[in-house]
Every structure is written in C-alpha cells, then in structure tokens.
Computed example of a mutant assay.
Amino acid sequence: MLFVALVSAFLKPVDEKGLPMYRLLIFVPVSLVLYLLHVPPLWVFLTSGLALIPLAGLLGEATESLAASRGPLIGGLLNATFGNATEIVITLVALQHNELTVVRASLIGSIIGNVLLVLGFSALLGGFRQNLLTFSSEVAQAHITSMSLAVIALLTPALLVQSAHLPEKNLQAAALMPLSLWVSAVLLVLYGAGLFFALRTHRHLFPTGETQEKPKWSATKASFILFASTVVVALESELLIGLLEPALHILHFNRMFAGLILLPILGNAAEHSTAITMALRNQMAVSLDIVASSSIQIAMFVTPVAVFSSLIWNHPLTILFTASELVALTMAILIAIRIVSDGQTHWLEGAQLLGVYAILAITFYFVGG
C-alpha cells in the first residue's frame, strides 16, 4: 500500500525528462516479492539497490518542494539536513548490522564520487556544449576551504594512531572513540557555522539555480512523500545491507569496493543527475554547489551523525579510516581544488577527473583496502 501511495502521489506531476528514473520504482515491489519468495540473494540485492535510485530522487524532490514552500532560510536548512537523507538511512542500517568497514568506506566514497565522478561528468558533458564553463572563483574558494577543513579533521585520528603506535585494534578503538566524538562535535559546530554563512550573512554569494520556481508539490504532499520515501528507503536498505555478505561473495566484490564505489553511486544517483543536468544548461555554478555542498555535508554532518548514532547499537564507529581511503580522499580533493580554483573548467578536465575515479575504482576492486 505504501508503494502504491508513493507512485500515485508522484507519477502525475512528473515530466517526461524525469519519468525514466522513476520507472525504476517498479523494483520496490519486485525486490520485496523476490525476498519473500526466497530467491537467490544476489537478485534481491540488485533489485533493492536499483530501487534506491528513484527513492533517492523522491526524497530530493520532496525536500526541494517542502523547502521552496518554507522560504529561503527554512528551505536552506531543510536542504542542508535532508540533502543526503538516503546516505544517512543506508549508513544507520549498516551500523545496525555492524558493517563498520562498509560505513567508513561509503562515507569516503560519497565524497570521492562527488568531486571526481559527478564533477567530472558535469565538466565533460557540459564542456561538449560550451567551450568554457565558468563559475564564481570566490564561491569556489569558500567550498575549497570547507572541504579542506573536513579532510584535515578526517586525517587527524589516523595520524594520531600512527604516531602513538597503537597496534591492538581494541586499544585503537578505546583511544579513538572519545577523540572521534569530540572531532565530530567540532565538525557539527563548523557545519552549522557554514550554514549561517551561506544562508544569512553571505547568501548573495551562492547560486540559487531554479529556486524561484513554484514548488512542484504542496507542503502537505511533499511532507507525506518525504516520510513515505524515508520508510521505503529504510526497508530497501535493510534488504541491501542484510544480503551484503552473500551478494559480495557471488559478485567477487570486497567490502572496501562496495563501500567506496557501489553504495555511493546507488545512494547519490538522483543528485548526480541533477548536477549533470545543470552543467548541460550552462549552469556550472549550480553543479559545483551541488557537488561541494553534498561533499561537505557528508564529511561535516553525516559522518558525525554516524559516529554518535553508532553508540545506540553499541557498535562504536571511530573515524579511523584506512591509509588507502585517506590517500584516495586526499588525491580527489587536491585534484578537484586544482580544477575549480580558477573559476572555470572544460571537457578535458572533466575527462581527467573521470580518469582518476576509474583508476581508484579499478585499484580498490583488485586490491581492496
């Protein structure tokens, strides 16, 4: 019944451009039926993963409609809170299943996917239509500062462990959990300060894209779809994470590859398509804002939320990322900084970003972490 309500509430206002993605909603009942019929786990895993793609789009559409009806300040806060709702739900479900390796990898993978895959496709495809894509270098510098700060915060615990020579995993967790909690608290404070900067004191610096359009749905309808979509995302995430072990065994994927590459793509597909669409419309500033805002939110909001939430299930999540994850993250941020710092980009730089992402994906597929 919940699926029927979602479809009936949504499909009428969808335009032709948005319809193909939302046809994937058929995988919601398909995944549930396959699960109830006890078919091989790989099929349930794949269909539940495909179901998450349109559900993430529904969450995004509902959040944007609700935000548009509440004014710029409340709307900005709603977008800042629910902008990565799918990733938050998947992360919480994975924490409940004690998949700490997958959680850490997916947090890093979401940032890498944003700054390499999404920015790369945006610059590549937008660059084919426009000789040169331009955006505000001042705004780019603000994003760069925030992302650099987040990377430094994520690097610190790993550097501490190496310098303190804590060889035992239990000792690492005991030493790093208080540190992780304090760092997470600081990140949340800085994230709030960044929102105040973007929504109040320096709102004029940030692109608004098409926010002047009327909301697609009423506030009541958007609230219902937001709630219903979140429930279904939680259900599909339970199927996806619950069958992760047998599915990875069949696919010959390691957990690091699944977290860094597979899960972020499924959870971010709808948002990725929006950023690329904006670039095709020669609105690279909006694409960059989507990429940067999502990356900053993952590092400075979703990661702290995951750390604090892990205590609920007594599965403490420290921010002790592996060396390979941190190297990949640092590389991604550095090359992204180099490309966006001058306020312009073109298709070749997009291809280079995609090349780096492909190299990282291949490496983690064969080597893992």
Rank of each mutant, 00 (worst) to 15 (best):
V186A: 15
S137I: 03
M1V: 14
L149Y: 14
N98W: 10
T145A: 06
V305G: 03
I152D: 12
V340P: 00
L166Y: 13
P20I: 07
N131C: 04
F3Y: 13
Q297F: 01
L354H: 03
L288K: 01
L248P: 00
E168Y: 08
H38A: 08
P207A: 02
G71C: 05
V7D: 08
A185N: 02
D15A: 03
L317V: 12
E61I: 15
E245V: 13
E99V: 06
L77W: 13
S65W: 01
H38Q: 11
F3C: 10
L46W: 02
I290L: 09
E238V: 13
L348W: 11
A306F: 03
A62R: 09
G120V: 00
V340Y: 07
L95C: 09
L24C: 14
A269S: 10
V286P: 00
Y365I: 04
I276H: 09
A275S: 08
L116S: 02
L132W: 01
L155G: 02
E99Y: 09
S341M: 15
I225Q: 07
F366M: 08
A123I: 06
H165S: 06
E325T: 12
A140L: 03
N254P: 11
L154F: 07
L2G: 09
T91W: 12
F121I: 15
E236A: 03
W313F: 14
L78S: 09
L235Q: 02
L92W: 09
T47I: 10
Q344E: 15
G350Y: 02
L239M: 13
A279Q: 01
I53S: 08
P72T: 10
A67E: 07
L195N: 12
S341F: 15
V291M: 01
D342P: 14
A51G: 08
P178W: 06
H202N: 14
S110K: 06
S180I: 05
V30K: 05
I111P: 01
Y191L: 04
A56P: 14
E210G: 03
A332V: 03
V4S: 12
V231G: 00
L179G: 05
